[in-house]
Simulated scan of single mutants.
Amino acid sequence: MTELVLPRAGLAGMLRSEWTKLRTVRSTMWSLVAMAGIAIGLMSLFAWALMQQWSTADDGSHSYFTQHPLEIVIARPVFIAQLVIAVLGVMVISAEYTTGMIRSTLQAQPRRLTVLTAKILVFASLMLVVGEVLAFAAFFLGRAIIAEHIPVSLGDPGVARSVAGAGLFMAVLGLFSLAFGAIIRHTAGAITGVLGLILIVSPLTALLPGSWGAHINAWMPTNAGQLIFEPTLSPDALLTQWQGLAVFGGWTVLLLAVAAYLFKTRDA
Score class of each variant (00 low, 15 high):
Thr232Leu: 03
Val163Glu: 05
Gly210Asn: 04
Leu195Phe: 11
Val122Pro: 02
Lys21Arg: 07
Gly37Trp: 06
Leu83Arg: 06
Leu227Asp: 08
Gln107His: 12
Ser94His: 12
Pro231Ile: 01
Ala137His: 02
Thr28Leu: 08
Gly196Glu: 03
Gly131Cys: 00
Phe139Thr: 01
Arg23Tyr: 11
Ile85Cys: 10
Thr252Tyr: 01
Val159Thr: 07
Leu175Trp: 09
Ser27His: 00
Met1Lys: 12
Leu227Asn: 01
Gly167Cys: 02
Val92His: 06
Met220Leu: 08
Leu178Gln: 05
Val172Ser: 05
Gly193Cys: 08
Pro69Gln: 13
Lys264Thr: 10
Leu173Gly: 11
Ala237Glu: 09
Leu256His: 01
Arg143Pro: 04
Leu204Glu: 11
Leu168Val: 14
Leu128Val: 09
Val258Ala: 04
Gly225Val: 12
Phe169Asp: 13
Val87Pro: 07
Met51Asn: 04
Ala147Leu: 10
Arg103Leu: 01
Leu195Pro: 06
Ser61Ala: 15
Glu71Asp: 12
Ala214Leu: 11
Ser55His: 10
Thr66Pro: 05
Ile183Ala: 02
Ser55Thr: 15
Ala144Cys: 04
Glu132Val: 15
Phe263Val: 08
Ala86Cys: 14
Ala118Ser: 10
Gly249Ala: 07
Gly193Gln: 09
Met91Gly: 07
Ser177Leu: 03
Lys119Ile: 08
Pro221Ala: 10
Met43Trp: 06
Gln82Arg: 03
Phe263Asp: 05
Glu18Thr: 13
Val25Asn: 06
Leu227Met: 07
Gly225Thr: 09
Met35Gly: 02
Ile72Phe: 00
Leu178Trp: 04
Ile150Ser: 01
Leu50Gln: 14
